[in-house]
């Protein structure tokens, strides 16, 4: 018998056995499925559908004009800039942190991991506040900034800083466990073969973690473009100047321009759906890679 039929046989065996000895009666199964779906419908599907219905409530014309409004366009632009700056910064940080933590042993490592997680736990409003305390008018650097005619709070740099803060851990969080699991055998092998540090990073480490890296970037980007609380505190809500897309949604909503608010919101919702699709694709790819790796390892 070939190896393939054996594995197939084993797979069938566990699956069927599972049904026989350790499964629930059909009516319980369907009740559970129905309750889970009802919950997800109430909390996920209906709100998602509502975004698009509300956006198109007044027709395509209103929808499009809300999107090509100059204030909307400038909000889109600012959102893209903030994400474009935050992403590479946190990417480099994530790789550096994961390299230090996964490949070396040092005192205080677990404290460092906890500190990296800290921005996850901090309320976005508090994240905005701390930058106001440093760069705001009465802040540490407030006077110095005025003297040098620079602005951080209620300006683009503040928005970028807040965005960097809230997306700080995403790449590092993905890479640390991944690189820890991979160990350092391959890097040591490369070193023995004469590769330099940067060569090892480019040719051995990065190709091994590419899917984790991409995954972290997708999450970072989604959060960067969607951040509301932190950015709201530092932005000052100046139309056409310091408004990001989520802030623009808020302004339109508070002015009772519901259709326009939902139109801009629908763009963000689309972004979320694309993010989920990419994320699923990446998970699928890395699972496939892992399976291939395992197959090779087992001969």
């Amino acid at each position: 018998m070939t190896a393939i039929t054996v594995t197939q046989h084993v797979r069938y065996q566990t699956k069927v056995a599972h049904r026989r000895a350790t499964s629930e009666p059909a009516w319980i199964r369907w009740t559970l499925i129905a309750s889970a779906l009802a919950f997800l419908t109430l909390f996920l599907f209906v709100p998602l559908a509502a975004v698009f219905t509300e956006a198109l409530r007044k027709g395509w014309d209103t929808y499009l004009s809300a999107l090509i409004d100059p204030d909307a366009l400038s909000a889109i632009w600012l959102t893209l800039i903030a994400a474009a700056i935050a992403l590479p910064l946190n990417l480099v940080f994530g790789v550096a942190a994961a390299w230090a933590i996964a490949k070396f042993e040092f005192r205080g490592k677990s404290v460092l991991i906890t500190l990296i997680d800290l921005p996850f736990a901090v309320s976005p409003v508090v994240a905005g506040l701390i930058y106001v305390l440093i760069f705001g008018l009465q802040g540490w650097f407030g006077e110095w900034l005025i003297d040098n005619d620079m602005k951080v709070i209620f300006a683009i740099p503040g928005i970028v800083l807040a965005t960097v803060f809230v997306t700080f851990p995403f790449v590092a969080r993905e890479l640390i466990p991944l690189m820890q699991a991979q160990g350092k055998d391959e890097e040591e092998a490369a070193l023995v073969l004469g590769a330099s540090g940067w060569q090892i990073l480019w040719r051995v480490t990065l190709p091994n973690i590419k899917w984790g890296l991409l995954y972290g970037m997708i999450l970072t980007n989604a959060r960067a473009m969607g951040e509301f609380g932190a950015v709201s505190v530092v932005s000052g809500h100046i139309r056409g100047m310091t408004n990001t897309m989520p802030l623009h949604v808020e302004i339109l909503y508070n002015e009772y321009q519901y259709a326009a608010a939902f139109a801009v919101a629908s763009l963000l919702a689309l972004l979320a759906l694309v993010t989920l699709a990419l994320k699923t694709f990446v998970e699928w790819q890395s699972a496939k890679n892992a399976a291939e790796f395992e197959k090779e390892a087992n001969g």
Binding site: L40, F45, M225, P246, E250, A265, L268, L273, L276
Partner: peptide, 16 residues
Amino acid sequence: LVDLPFALPTAVAGIA
């Protein structure tokens, strides 16, 4: 789709 609340900006979730 279970991850939607991670991906959807909170302001959008709020108004929806």
